[in-house]
Nucleic acid binder design. Structure first.
Lengths: 220, 220
DNA sequence: CTAACGGAAACTTTCGAAAGTTGCTATCGT
DNA sequence: ACGATAGCAACTTTCGAAAGTTTCCGTTAG
């Protein structure tokens, strides 16, 4: 992997990790200093992030971290409600036993990881977030179609931004969410594709609603 | 639009137009001479095409036009069978009257354009191909979700490569295809989303089968 | 005759300075 | 005081040469 791939990874994790705020301008002088690289490498990394929907660019106006809005969250959620269940259903139908085992494993660590960490009572712990992402990726991994898988994963990644910037999760959501995760696991081991799709669609709608409720300004 | 956007367009049309053969190596010296540009501009254009699936890249081994294979066609078709009908159904449910009118117009043009041109009896005319693409894009355009639309259009574009390199179309297919197009139009004006999705799924399967039959070597 | 090694050619990747563009500010005229 | 204009400053974009890689071929030793 070339050098620009390295800065691409770092930029991506910095955006997803909340170290760069949505809407923030990404100037080359700053970037080069921050990551110790040349403009060329930074430029290539940024253009890759643009196609993934994490960075926006205007001609001759540079690059910015994408800005969050209720309208966009609604559109993103609508897209995820359509494609993720579809991909998940295909995984349930066609995934092999190794996949099934990976899902069971991912659910196990998710279930055993505490929702809130030592610090905040508002944001889920980094460990839980990681386990949560891993579980959902594991669910989709069973789909044998590379293209569909990467489409679904791409949408989930865009949603990740909204998750990291969500103001707060309600205390009561924790159990409901855990219940839904168990339901998804159940659909996998029982190989019930239609139930799987239905449950995932509901889960996406539910969690998106939590993000909307948590925010301060009015929904679009 | 910058200079690299210009060469991006030219490269894209050259690939889609069959002037660059699948699997062909794309060397910077050649590219710079062909399009009269610098390596930097060519590089940016290529990386953009990689994310669209029209060009493949290996680290330190340069770029190539994607190579066609039966396995890949099968996967691509499978993906299209899932997402295009979904997007089309959403268009039928939510598209406004202006969209409906655009579909009627696009179908009119398509129906009046002769399938075979002056020259070959094997390949559809360039005019028909253009009208065909325009019709299908018009169908998807009614979907209000920008992300879903661009996903569906992206998949169609990848399929375009297989269409331009298909060995030949059977003579009898012309009428069957025209019939299916009329069916799609009908589903739009009658606002029947489930029929629309079903018809489009069938149409995709059918045309993909024609491509497979037309090829000379054995399917995977 | 085969295999390993060395070296050169061709190409990809990276870099940073030059050129180009935009938006702001200060100055001048009304 | 207000508006217009010209110049400036900051930044983006582009370019092509330098550096780094891989591949291939010819040579030599076994």
């Amino acid at each position: 992997m070339g050098k620009s791939g390295e800065i691409y990874e770092r930029l991506r994790t910095d955006i997803l990790g909340g170290r760069l705020t949505p809407g923030q301008r990404l100037k080359f002088p700053d970037l080069c200093a921050r990551y110790g690289t040349s403009v060329g490498a930074a430029r290539e990394a940024l253009t890759r992030l643009v196609t993934e929907g994490l960075v926006a660019s205007q001609s001759n106006h540079g690059f910015t971290v994408v800005s969050l809005s209720y309208g966009d969250l609604a559109e993103l959620t609508s897209a995820r409600r359509e494609v993720e269940p579809l991909v998940f259903a295909m995984a349930v139908r066609e995934g092999d036993m190794a996949w099934e085992a990976a899902v069971v494993a991912a659910h196990h660590v998710l279930a055993r990881t505490p929702f809130f960490g030592e610090g905040s009572r508002e944001h889920p712990s980094a460990a839980w977030s990681a386990a949560h992402t891993a579980f959902h990726l594991a669910l989709l991994e069973g789909c044998p179609n590379r293209r569909l898988r990467s489409i679904a994963c791409g949408l989930r990644e865009e949603a990740e931004l909204y998750r990291t910037w969500a103001v707060s999760y309600g205390q009561e959501s924790e159990e409901e969410i855990a219940l839904e995760h168990r339901g998804l696991l159940e659909a996998v081991v029982e190989r019930d594709a239609v139930s799987a799709a239905e449950r995932l669609r509901h889960h996406i709608s539910h969690t998106a609603r939590l993000l909307i409720k948590g925010a301060t300004d009015t929904p679009a």
